[in-house]
Design a protein around this nucleic acid. Structure first.
Length: 965
DNA sequence: CTGGGTTATCAGACTTTGTATCCG
DNA sequence: CCGGATACTTTGTCTGATAACCCA
């Protein structure tokens, strides 16, 4: 078939690719368009496209498809059509290029997919814009966006959107809604929902306006008004008849009196313009005015009718079908009407005069712009909304066919609410007439909220939705997640009546019944996620139907070839798990239970070697399992699993007689207490290729629970303390640096042949230091501890820690200790103390005997609060450590210690044993205490001499600094 | 013309207890 | 040689949802 072959030459790329990159399809046609392709591929061409506002940059063209075309296989039937369509598509680029530079080119190109991409890009852009600030969402919807400026924005943003798209790959045939966008939609939906509720609140309160009532009441004849309040003495039937008659008359009267001059609220779409532009929200004065004039939008009409009924003493609720931004992607929905438009484009012959196309497209655009009514939906689809048949009502205002606001009246005789819509559908008691079909683009029934006179509200959607379970439910927020359900409940809870009347209960019953009476879904899809029915085909992998009670059959085939499938109840659908998974939920399969379902086991690379085919995994339902009861603690011995720890995925898995302490130090504490404890595995973390057990605290025998907690507290306190020590050491090091600097400066000054300015400055410095020290003596420890204490502790901790098993906290402690020690070793003699030490050295006799005590390794950790020991040392040796401080500091942060301690410590310790405390560091300074210490002292003495001897002032200062009391 | 079937694609759930090397 | 410390590493597969398109 020659023609076929020719076609086949044209179509070379795989089908999907052609669709995917619609714009790139331009380049695909081979042969005569080669030069066009070349042009298109050139960089300059790109730029020229860039300059055009509404044009999408073409993906980098690929020459390959063209080459492949030569050896393309013979075209099959299906492919031929594609080929044809593509050849038509192929004509478009010609047109497009011909028109290049003109904005109309886009419309002419008119490929659906391309439009789609444009739309998506627009959406992307706007969303990414609004992503930055939440307010933008509302802005976008509540403000009228100038078309031109809109395009400008697109122009600016397109490059970004495109870059993203290019990054994701050339196959942008379909773009999945990214998560952030979904979240944004939910956020927008919620915000809009609340805003609409607020709007309804205001509107509802307007309906109570007395002045409006006074204006409207005379509309009805007094007899009608009397009918509306039937005599309670009469029989129920009579009351009902009377009331109904009165209501009908009221409807008729009002309908004739009210002049509709504008449509009502319409459905909101993501992106695009809001319909509030048409009828600005009225304030109360305008509402009154509308009542006087008896003219306004369809919504106002029904609102006034509600006011009228309330004026007549009828229990009337204002019902609003909230037109909230949809949760789901609206592109698909709004695209459906574009389909009629499609043939128009594809019908273009290559030789069609351009002007004609041009004008027709323009006219569509103009119409779209001219009519605000048509400007819903994406800008890209403006025209399509116009062409869609749904809103056709050839009246000047494109009135809505289905109401957004209507009225419910309470028929007191039966305590039942009946819908009344005198304006839009002009129906009475016909709830089914008020729900627009799903395809109706102007509004949608998702949330119908009825506002009572007193401001309370009730969701009455179920009364009006024909397929609440099958369809409406899906569009509502509550069904999307538990969190959203709670959110929705919370919001609606603010409007819910506190106490329920009889009528409320009757209504609730009615609504529930209505839901229960809803028939089988009309198609297979609606069975998916249906709250009452289920099909086997929609079962998830781990779901099973048990028992298999058929509730009916549905035809999944065609009428010609019926394929009946059984329908089951949703309540019989159970979630299954494998025995392992049940164990992770703290349950075990009962003995003798047979698996209800087998699923192919997941491939496990590790196991695959052992048993090549693991086969199936058996699944069980909840009913087939029982609570797992772990082995109890026997004589303080906690049972363990194969890994030496204990699985505690749920609290019930804690063995009898044991307690779970969720604290990382629990096990260490247990070790200190010398009680049995095992790590508690509470879950798994998937890091690296394998899951790793997550260990959260430990399991200890119940009777030691309190003891363990106490020890943990001690350990925590100790940790804080160690940190404080480390900071003290750090502070000391800095002091050392400062003093060294001072010393050097002083010495340099002494070498100077003649006194220089600098000397003065150093003197000043030393003076200032002296002053500082004088003022703030405690700071020589820069914290809670004196140097000797830190050194001792560091040593002790290091020794003990070596003997001990590692644990996290310990390692940290060790590090800090080590650092502290190193620091201190760097300071053989602490300059801070040096002078004092020299003086005090003789006094410090008590120091040496104490050192052995101090070096005892165990005390810190074994007692968990080793400072008492230290303290006693301190008191003896003048260490300056004070118990009270430690106690008070226990719970506080390190900073507290840092700040508060020095003052306290100094006041007391310095007074009592200052000299001792000062001297001690020098002796302990080195690692081998004595030799180092003495050496250090010597050195220090030298230093002191060199430092201070010259300056009389310094001498004066020195005592102040060190000995100030 | 609607809806089921098919296909493509993506997001997210599910997975579920180390090892090699260095250093003292 | 042994034991402990440390660094390394960041999966892969499957399912379900969604969308587009074809076809009956």
């Amino acid at each position: 078939m020659p023609p076929r072959k020719a076609l086949s030459v044209v179509t070379k790329a795989p089908k999907r690719q052609a669709r995917a990159t619609a714009s790139s399809a331009k380049q695909e046609p081979a042969g005569i368009y080669d030069d066009l392709i070349a042009e298109a591929t050139s960089e300059t061409d790109f730029h020229s496209h860039d300059e055009r506002p509404l044009k999408r940059r073409r993906p980098t063209p690929r020459a390959k498809p063209v080459i492949q075309s030569a050896d393309a296989p013979p075209v099959k039937g299906k492919e031929r059509e594609v080929a044809q369509s593509r050849s038509q598509v192929g004509t478009v680029p010609g047109l497009d290029d011909y028109l290049s530079g003109s904005e109309v080119a886009q419309n002419n190109a008119g490929l659906q997919s391309r439009r789609h991409e444009d739309a998506i890009t627009d959406l992307d852009d706007n969303l990414s814009d609004s992503d930055l600030a939440f307010e933008d969402i509302d802005l976008e919807n509540s403000s009228i966006i100038d078309i031109d400026s809109d395009e400008e924005l697109e122009d600016v943003n397109i490059s970004l959107g495109r870059a993203v798209q290019d990054g994701t790959g050339s196959s942008s045939r379909r773009r999945q809604v990214p998560r952030y966008e979904k979240e944004l939609r939910f956020l927008g939906h919620k915000a809009h929902f609340v805003a609409m509720l607020g709007h309804c609140m205001v509107v509802n309160s307007r309906c109570n306006d007395r002045r409006v009532h006074r204006v409207l009441k005379p509309l009805l004849a007094s007899t009608t008004r009397a009918y509306l309040r039937p005599n309670k003495e009469h029989t129920q039937f009579q009351q009902d008849r009377t009331f109904t008659m009165g209501l009908e008359r009221a409807c008729d009267t009002f309908r004739e009196a009210f002049h509709v001059n504008a449509p009502g609220l319409t459905r909101a779409y993501w992106q695009g313009e809001k319909e509030f532009g048409d009828h600005a929200v009225l304030d109360r004065a305008e509402f009154r005015e509308a009542a006087v004039k008896l003219a306004g939008s369809q919504d106002i009409g029904n609102q006034l009718f509600c006011a009228l009924l309330r004026a007549c003493g009828v229990h009337a609720r204002l019902v609003c079908s909230l037109q909230v931004l949809p949760l789901a992607n609206t592109i698909a929905a709004s695209q459906t009407p574009t389909k009629p438009h499609k043939p128009r484009v594809f019908a273009i012959a290559p030789d069609t005069p351009i002007g004609k196309q041009d004008s027709s497209n323009l006219s569509i655009r103009e119409r779209a712009v001219a009519s605000a009514r048509s400007r819903i939906g994406q800008p890209a689809f403006k025209a399509t909304v116009v062409t869609s048949p749904a809103p056709r009502k050839s009246k000047p205002y494109h009135k809505l066919s289905y109401p957004v606001f209507w009225v419910e009246v309470l028929n007191a005789a039966y305590q039942k609410w009946a819908p009344v819509d005198p304006i839009v559908t002009q129906t009475f008691k016909k709830a089914s007439k008020l729900e627009p079909p799903l395809s109706y683009p102007l509004n949608q029934l998702v949330y119908a909220i009825a506002f009572s006179k007193n401001g309370s509200a009730k969701d009455v959607t179920r009364r009006y939705a024909k397929a609440y379970n099958a369809k409406t439910r899906r569009m509502r927020l509550e069904t999307t997640s538990e969190a959203n359900r709670l959110w929705h409940r919370k919001v609606m809870g603010m409007f819910t009546k506190q106490s329920l009347s009889d009528a409320d209960m009757v209504e609730e019953t009615e609504l529930t019944q209505r839901l229960a009476r809803e028939g089988l879904p009309g198609n297979i899809q609606d069975f998916k996620g249906h709250p009452i029915y289920a099909l086997e085909r929609h079962l998830k992998r781990h779901e099973v139907i048990q028992p298999r009670r058929e509730a009916g059959k549905v035809n999944a085939g065609t009428a010609a070839h019926p394929k009946m499938e059984p329908i089951y109840r949703r309540e019989d659908v159970h979630v299954c798990r494998s025995a392992d998974q049940w164990y992770r939920h703290g349950r075990v399969v009962k003995a003798g239970e047979q698996a209800l379902k087998h699923v192919p086991a997941r491939s496990r690379p590790k196991d695959s070697e052992d048993e090549i085919e693991q086969g199936d995994t058996a699944l069980y339902t909840l009913q087939q399992t029982e609570l797992y009861i772990p082995k109890a603690v026997v004589r303080g011995k906690i049972p363990r699993n194969a890994f030496g720890n204990l699985d505690v995925y749920v609290p019930s898995m804690v063995p009898n007689g044991a307690a779970h302490i969720r604290h990382p130090l629990a096990k260490s504490a247990a070790e200190i207490l010398q009680i049995d404890a095992v790590d508690a595995v509470t879950g798994f973390k998937f890091a690296r290729r394998k899951g790793t057990a997550v260990i959260e605290g430990a399991i200890v025998p119940e009777q030691y629970l309190d003891a363990t907690h106490t020890v943990i507290e001690g350990l925590l306190w100790q940790e804080v303390d160690e940190r404080s020590k480390a900071r003290s050491a750090l502070a000391m090091r800095m002091w050392k640096r400062l003093l060294q600097g001072l010393k050097i400066a002083e010495r340099v000054a002494s070498y100077a042949t003649e006194p220089m300015q600098e000397v003065d400055s150093t003197l000043d410095m030393s003076n200032s230091t002296a002053w500082y020290a004088d003022d703030d003596v405690p700071l020589h420890t820069a914290g809670r501890y004196t140097l000797d204490e830190i050194v001792d502790m560091a040593k002790a901790a290091k020794k003990t820690s070596k003997a001990k098993k590692r644990r996290q906290a310990d390692s940290e402690l060790d590090e800090t200790d080590g650092e502290a020690m190193d620091d201190i070793e760097d300071i053989p003699d602490d300059r801070l103390h040096s002078r004092g030490r020299a003086d005090v050295n003789e006094l410090g006799g008590g120091f040496l005997p104490e050192s052995p005590n101090a070096e005892e390794p165990a005390y810190i950790i074994e007692t968990g609060g080793g400072f008492t020991m230290d303290d006693t040392d301190g008191v003896d040796s003048g260490g300056g450590f004070i118990v009270d401080d430690a106690d008070t500091a226990q719970a506080d942060g390190v900073q507290d210690n840092q700040i508060r301690h020095p003052l306290d410590t100094e006041v007391t310790s310095v007074h009592d044993q200052r000299s001792g405390s000062l001297r001690k560091p020098s002796t302990h300074g080195g690692r081998s205490a004595r030799a180092n210490a003495e050496q250090a002292v010597d050195v220090e003495d030298d230093d002191q001499d060199s430092l201070l001897s010259h300056d009389p002032e310094d001498d004066d200062v020195e005592p102040d600094w060190m000995e100030s009391e």
